[in-house]
Design a protein around this nucleic acid. Structure first.
Lengths: 168, 168
DNA sequence: GAAGATTGTCAACCTCCTTGCCTAGTTTGT
DNA sequence: ACAAACTAGGCAAGGAGGTTGACAATCTTC
């Protein structure tokens, strides 16, 4: 009874981590597909990470890195890609000569709102298929679990995310 | 009411996709940490994907690619890394001169069982913190949702996974 | 002002995956 | 039987999303 490859495989398929992985992958692929279908052909899921952390009046690279939970270099590289897509613009900081302020363009605001709409639409469709109450409860349980296992990753206005937080 | 960056950020944080992403990331990092702490210092989460799809008597690269849902090249590269870690071994196929059969080493079987044990331990700990019933229900709801949105990704013995299935 | 921190970036590298191509085998059609 | 067609695997190059180290320019502190 030491090692039965089929039952090992079955056991893995029922693990919470595996279920989470499949759901994340499926939903993320669907998001990308739909946002691109809306005409944003260059869209990548990582874009929303940065775009959603920009303040209305712009945010510096370092602040973004702290909020998102990655290095300044990663933010700098990501910002360049998003800038090339025309969704943000860099400006010199008004008072600090070292800093760069990143700000939404009009297109940047529109793609972010579009992506959120698509996420909502996907959730609504899932709710239609799997049950309104079920999806609502799923979200509640996930939020509850995350409160236990990843309290630092939660969104708190005016608070910086702890280093090593979940990006994307 | 056009665009308030703080409320947009808050809206995104409550999306199902975001919750899934955080939970996946947190759990996956914990798995890696604990398996490495057990002495498997070279462990990477992708290893379990391939290891769990190996049959007892070995499996060819092409079959693995079909099961896992990626390209043969990706499997080939992953297999090399796992082989270098001493967890699998390649052998010529007995009858087909083109094929390569990949098989567990003893260490490969042990690390796979260890990783599954760690996953179970993490789930148990989460259940202790967030509630036994809650985590059980979370898994049930996820499995139910996946049955709707990703039926092809589910595990069916003696069935190959559809192309484009969720890897890892 | 000199010493020290902070900001952003360049360069190099890593992981995991992709696409394109290529050889060595196996199967099929005639 | 033998060429044509397919299949198995691997090489090479590269993309996407990070990492770490080093560095010049610019604050800030004493």
């Amino acid at each position: 009874m030491s090692f039965d490859s089929a039952s090992v495989r079955a056991r893995r398929e029922q693990m919470l981590l595996r279920l989470l992985f499949r759901a994340t992958h499926t939903m993320n692929a669907e998001l990308t597909r739909r946002v691109r279908a809306r005409g944003w052909t260059a869209f990548k899921p990582t874009f929303t990470t940065l775009l959603s952390h920009l303040d209305t009046d712009g945010t510096t690279i370092s602040t973004l890195a702290a909020r998102i939970g990655t290095s300044r270099q990663a933010v700098s590289q990501l910002a360049r890609a998003i800038e090339e897509a025309g969704l943000i613009e860099r400006m010199p900081h008004p008072t600090d000569g070292r800093s760069v302020v990143v700000r939404h363009t009009d297109a940047g605001r529109r793609i972010l709102l579009d992506a959120l709409d698509v996420m909502s639409a996907i959730e609504a469709e899932y709710a239609g298929r799997a049950g309104e109450a079920e999806v609502g409860e799923l979200k509640g349980l996930l939020a509850h679990l995350l409160g236990e296992i990843d309290p630092a990753g939660a969104f708190h206005p005016d608070e910086q995310r702890s280093p090593g937080a979940v990006p994307n």
